[in-house]
């Protein structure tokens, strides 16, 4: 059973890693804990669902053993764009104004309010019932003795790895990526060297929201699409970001994996219902022992 839970953990971890990267980026560059980040995952999943439904969903041809075809690829691109626009709109309407007031924590309350607003808009627009991208039933194959995964799950893990590599190249090789890292390190200094901070803020939202949208689609693909999914994942995402060290992208990836695997392995000992509590307990332990996280530098 251990191998199966480990595999499940890696699949959940891939979703969490992508979600946690966006959270840690906004935390580091915009300097507040964005409680609305989970809602971006939810909206990402629903934006993609619109496209899949518009293309007639399951009727089309699928890629080999996968449960989906071209519509989902289009949906992934569409949802990345739409979720980024949504994030920028929320930033423009709310956070931009509050940043000027200098009360940092009211940003956090506002993000908490925004998360409830966005989540309940989903309920009003799409209804409270769970949705799926595909009605096809996937047969799990045995990849190792005792470990069964579906082709969709393998796709999720592979695409996560590709996205993480792309993100690494973006942050280290492009001018924009370097500017984002500089801004995160020292905003004033970055500004003095001529970096356009407004542009950086916009790109932070675009990168964070796009990854959140993809993470939402992954969760929809491997579990289901629900209005509460983002809120339910929020605790996992924060635990991942804190465990890895807030501000560290690689830490967020590592944290996402550790939290995902730990949550699924905990099923060996306690009821699966307690998964969020496991993530929470790990987070509290990290805060007690090493508040800067595994790969973090800043303690304050």
């Amino acid at each position: 059973m251990f191998g199966q839970y480990l595999a499940d953990g890696i699949i959940l971890g891939s979703t969490l890693a992508l979600g946690a990267i966006g959270l840690t980026l906004t935390y580091n560059i915009l300097n507040f804990a964005n409680f609305a980040h989970g809602s971006l995952l939810t909206w990402g999943a629903y934006f993609a669902w619109i496209i899949v439904v518009a293309f007639g969903g399951v009727q089309g041809a699928t890629f080999g053993p996968l449960s989906f075809g071209w519509p989902l690829v289009v949906a992934l691109l569409f949802t990345a764009v739409m979720t980024s626009i949504l994030a920028i709109i929320v930033d423009w309407l709310v956070f931009r104004i509050l940043r000027k007031t200098n009360i940092q924590v009211s940003l956090v309350i506002a993000s908490f309010g925004a998360s409830l607003l966005l989540r309940n808009l989903v309920v009003v627009i799409f209804g409270p019932e769970p949705q799926y991208y595909s009605e096809n039933i996937q047969i799990a194959r045995e990849i190792f003795p005792g470990v069964r995964v579906t082709p969709d799950q393998i796709f999720v893990v592979c695409l996560s790895i590709i996205l993480v590599i792309l993100l690494h190249l973006f942050m280290t090789r492009t001018k924009l990526g370097k500017a984002m890292r500089a801004t995160a390190d020292n905003t004033s200094l970055a500004q003095v060297t001529g970096i356009n901070i407004n542009n950086i803020v916009r790109w932070t939202w675009i990168v964070g929201a796009s990854l959140a949208a993809v993470a939402g689609v992954f969760f929809g693909l491997t579990v289901q699409i629900l209005p509460e999914m983002g809120f339910n994942l929020l605790l996992f995402l924060f635990a991942a970001a804190i465990l890895g060290g807030v501000g560290s992208i690689y830490g967020a990836i590592l944290g996402g994996m550790v939290i995902g695997i730990a949550a699924d392995l905990s099923v060996l000992f306690i009821s699966p219902a307690y998964k969020p509590a496991v993530a929470f307990t790990l987070m509290i332990l990290v805060l007690l022992i090493r508040p800067s996280g595994i790969l973090g530098e800043k303690t304050r």
Binding site: I29, N31, F32, R99, T101, N102, I103, V105, T187, N198
Partner: peptide
């Protein structure tokens, strides 16, 4: 209001 100056309050 003067509590913690947000890092990018001037944006």
């Amino acid at each position: 209001a003067e509590e913690t100056k947000s890092k990018i309050s001037n944006i």
